[in-house]
Design a protein around this nucleic acid. Structure first.
Length: 484
RNA sequence: CGGGGUGUAGCGCAGCCUGGUAGCGCAUUUGUCUGGGGGACAAAGGGUCGCAGGUUCAAAUCCUGUCACUCCGACCA
């Protein structure tokens, strides 16, 4: 958006380039629906819970008509689910772009050759889905893209002046998990945002890491979550630059231990300068203890955190960022010419977020007995107009008018015009988790009154029809969290 | 990959042990009523019982094989 398309990497001046890269970008308007009549929409909700669903998010995603299983660990995203997934993706894109990362798109099916170069073709094991094409060439459905992005990089980038560079894409991946489960929380085919940073030296790589660290804090917060960074295993690379981001939820797959204060910590604001030194923010967050059971144990935790600040919980891993130096640039010979005229191997890092896992993670965090309770920022619809007496001229007219006004006010709204009882409509609205229900009670329309139900609190308020749209806008807009 | 479980109508299930030609609830269709928490009444449609063999006069049911899904464990965004 902000970056001139014609700038050749080769000629780019670092300072000018950095300016373009790290400019704070305005948020594009959220996608709005067209006239969305529920009677004409495709929303196959289920009254009963399919037996295969074990955890609440999986059950609710099936019941709310968000997903349909097609095979073990592989799902169709039905319209409602896809809408949420896209909102999650949009937030990720906004925060990645804001941090200076640049989006591209790499293929899902890759040639085995690249993987042989890095040595991972043999190392990866059965999780990698290997395919043979008609010419009997070895292909694979990508489980990740380090090799490919390194190939892109080495093809075009020659000079240190083109650094720093962070390229990301959001693409479907496939890992042939032995045991997929929990719906899209752990599917074989899954959507992943993976970013890859390229820097001249470790100091640069560290700065790139901090940028992603900050972007991640902001990304999860904007979805209503607190993503807590936890020191993770760095493997053979070593160092301190590997963090997993976990969302706390009872059904989380990992046991996590953390300092209580992390759970309510304020994130870096929208005007955080990504060109500046972000180490203080990193230090601030990482000075408080947080680790998975892979990195610590009960005893270590108790020794590190004062008793009244100890929080032992379950966590869902929703992101992982790490620095791996020259692990791929070395075997794949990705070098740039430094200021001294000598070629150096680029320092790389990679940064993943799983949108298709975030959707169930958000549901794990936000639901009640009646169904999902979406945060506004990722809700499939921000509000639903419930016409309680479809077919009644007065009721229809008033409902359609208000729906139109909501749309005009930029609210992503749904109109429930199904010809059925009130109970069914309420149950559906609650189940699919629309944050605000604008209820049109036939009996009170004559008096010019309507009702707003807050999904989260259950609170209902009756108000003049003329005030309803204004009120909903005032409630919804701040909760989009797109200016925090 | 080791150990269990399950495949019967779109979904949830019964029937299987003790073979006799398939049933319940929800959903769907039509009509009437209803209209503030999955409403009522009436009528209707929908299933080669996962698949392939075998036993038998006869198989959803018994036997063999196979496929799929799923749960527990080891592994993972």
């Amino acid at each position: 958006m902000a970056r001139p398309a014609a700038v050749s990497p080769r000629n780019a001046v670092p300072s000018a380039r950095a300016g373009a890269l790290y400019e704070v970008q305005p948020n594009p308007a959220p996608a709005r629906g067209v006239f969305m009549r529920l009677s004409r929409y495709f929303l196959p909700v289920l009254k009963e819970t399919p037996k295969e669903a074990e955890i609440i998010s999986h059950q609710l995603m099936l019941r709310a008509g968000m997903i349909k299983q097609q095979a073990a660990g592989s799902y169709t995203w039905l319209p409602l689910g896809f809408k949420v997934l896209n909102k999650v993706v949009r937030i990720i894109e906004e925060e990645q772009n804001r941090s200076g990362a640049i989006q591209l798109l790499m293929p899902t099916v890759q040639s085995a050759d690249l993987w042989k170069e890095s040595g991972r073709y043999d190392a990866y094991g059965k999780e990698m889905l290997r395919i043979e094409d008609r010419h009997e060439r070895q292909m694979l459905f990508g489980p990740t893209n380090e090799e490919m992005i390194t190939d892109v990089f080495r093809t075009y980038v020659r000079s240190y002046k083109d650094l720093p560079l962070n390229l990301y894409h959001i693409q479907w991946k496939f890992r042939d998990e032995v045991r997929p489960r929990f719906g899209t929380m752990r599917s074989r085919e899954f959507l992943m945002k993976d970013a890859y940073s390229f820097d001249l030296d470790e100091a640069g790589a560290r700065a790139a890491f901090y940028r992603m660290f900050v972007a991640y804090l902001r990304t999860f917060r904007r979805m209503g979550l607190t993503g807590i960074p936890m020191r993770a295993d760095t493997g053979p690379i070593g160092g301190d630059l590997s963090y997993e981001f976990h969302v706390l939820a009872d059904t989380g797959e990992s046991q996590v231990y953390l300092h209580k204060d992390l759970a309510g910590k304020t994130i870096p604001p929208i005007d955080t300068d990504y060109r500046g030194d972000l180490k203080p923010i990193f230090d601030d967050w990482t000075s408080l203890f947080a680790a998975t059971d892979e990195m610590t144990d009960e005893a270590g935790f108790k020794a590190a955190v004062p008793e009244d600040k100890q929080l032992s919980a379950r966590g869902i891993e929703v992101g992982h960022i790490f620095y791996f130096g020259t692990k791929y640039s070395e075997p794949m010979k990705a070098t740039v010419t430094g200021p001294d005229g000598k070629d150096v191997l680029v320092q790389m890092g990679s940064y993943g977020i799983g949108p298709s896992r975030l959707v169930p993670a958000i549901i794990e965090a936000f639901h009640d007995e009646a169904g999902i309770v979406w945060p506004v920022s990722v809700a499939p619809f921000e509000a639903v107009v419930i016409n309680l007496k479809v077919g009644d001229a007065e009721s229809d007219t008033a409902s359609i008018k208000l729906y139109g006004e909501l749309q005009a006010a930029g609210i992503d709204a749904l109109y429930d015009d199904r010809d059925q009882g009130a109970g069914g409509k309420f149950a559906t609205a609650d189940l699919i988790g629309i944050p605000y229900q604008l209820i049109m009670p036939a009996a009170r329309l004559k008096e010019g009154m309507a009702e707003i139900k807050h999904r989260k609190s259950g609170e209902r308020e009756t108000l003049p029809i003329g005030d309803a749209v204004k009120k909903l806008v005032a409630l919804i807009v701040p909760q989009r969290l797109d200016t925090i």
